[in-house]
Amino acid sequence: MDRVPILKLGDILIVSIQIDLQDQSVLALQEDLSEQVVATGARGVIIDISAVEIVDSFIGRMLATIAGISRMLDAETVVVGMRPAVAITLVELGLSLGGVRTALNLEKGVALLNHIESVQIASATR
């Protein structure tokens, strides 16, 4: 079974999915990520799916679960690089990925995390 590597950049964890994921790999990634969020105290998780050709309900659920778990551990999740064909298919499938933030690419994903943080700080100090 292939394991997806998790990279750390500052206080952001970056996962780039480059392979056709088996269901076990998906579950392993879910576990690895939540462990890493706690271990590193990351405030953000970026999942890059620009190389992913299909997202079915199983992978879709994984993305939503990761976002939910991370939020409980005080980290925001951004899914970046979803292909148009994948997005259209997800809509047709009926999967809305509620609670998952998205951005067009990695760069915009990082910008979105910074923005979220600045808003949070602003509202906390007000």
């Binding site: 970046v80 997005a87 997800l90 998205t102 951005a103």
Partner: peptide, 12 residues
């Protein structure tokens, strides 16, 4: 409608 939702999934 679906296009708008799909665009959102992509971050736009």
């Amino acid at each position: 409608l679906k296009t708008v939702v799909a665009a959102r999934l992509m971050g736009a």
